[in-house]
């Protein structure tokens, strides 16, 4: 339960990180709060040669609203989101999600950027943010750019981040006050990684996401169409029927819990 030997470099700026990534020799990992990579290194599932520590890099902690957009820095912790620092309806949705992530002592360190970059299929933010839509902000050798959250995660622990790029934050929609949202996580004990997640947001558009799959979370367009058409509920049987049309590799039990998660998320949105 001790990590393999690695080199630790304290970064002082994003430019530092980009340069270190560009000059990387061997496996290099960026360390945010370390609450996912830390356990994986203790279990030796991850054995990076070098760790680039973001804890001294400035400019990653901001939360700000401009018009109908919200900007959230990569190093914002789950605890800050749980405590209501993100404003408005988007904030209420994110507060609900954050409060169900692991435990307070982990939420005090774990970051939203780290969670999305790490891309554990069972983690909350990759699914929750895909339902929200918006963009991931990254910096690499080629400068700064935005990548849509739609399609950002491509598989388990695999994202659209290039090998020389670092995630610096998110550009998210500020949801209107009448937007409905519902989030349902299937797990046996509070704070555990999810066995299944259903996330729905019904505002200007309807988005429904099936998460905690074997791979990346995915949008369920047939459900979105029903919600856009005015549906305010979806039976588990109907959700099952729709999900069985997706090539998600679910066995019978997995199909059931993912259907339940989506059905209950919609139930919560219209409760």
């Amino acid at each position: 339960m001790k990590p393999a030997i690695f080199e630790h470099e304290r970064m002082s700026s994003i430019d530092d990180v980009v340069q270190a990534l560009a000059n990387a020799d061997g496996e290099v990992r960026v360390l945010g709060g370390g609450q996912s990579i830390g356990p994986m290194m203790n279990l030796r599932l991850a054995q990076p040669d070098k760790v680039l520590d973001l804890s001294r890099v400035e400019g990653l902690d901001g939360i700000s609203e401009a018009g109908d957009r919200l900007s959230i820095g990569a190093r914002v912790t789950h605890a800050r989101i749980e405590d209501g620092e993100v404003p408005g309806t988007t904030g209420a949705y994110m507060q609900f999600v954050a409060s169900g992530i692991s435990y307070r002592s982990v939420r005090n360190r774990g970051t939203i950027g780290g969670s999305v970059a790490h891309a554990d299929p069972a983690a909350d933010w990759p699914t929750a943010l895909l339902a929200l839509g918006g963009e991931v902000k990254v910096v690499g050798s080629g400068g700064e750019k935005s990548i849509p959250l739609d399609g950002f995660q491509v598989g388990p622990f695999t994202t659209g981040l290039g090998w020389d790029e670092v995630l610096i934050g998110f550009d998210l929609p500020a949801l209107g006050p009448n937007t409905k949202w519902g989030y349902y996580k299937v797990n046996r004990k509070p704070g555990e990684f999810a066995d299944a997640i259903g996330a729905v947001i019904i505002g200007n558009e309807a988005r429904a996401v099936c998460g905690a799959t074997e791979s990346a979370p995915f949008r369920v367009f047939d459900i979105e169409e029903k919600l856009s058409g005015g549906a305010t509920e979806l039976s588990v049987a109907d959700a099952r029927e729709i999900l069985s049309g997706h090539d998600a590799g679910f066995d019978d039990y997995e199909l059931q819990i993912h259907a339940v998660a989506l059905s209950r998320a919609i139930g919560r949105a219209f409760a």
Binding site: A79, N108, R109
Partner: peptide, 13 residues
């Protein structure tokens, strides 16, 4: 002043 897990926090951090 905030609770953290010392087993998954590196001393250098």
């Amino acid at each position: 002043g905030e609770p953290v897990r010392s087993c998954i926090t590196f001393a250098v951090v």
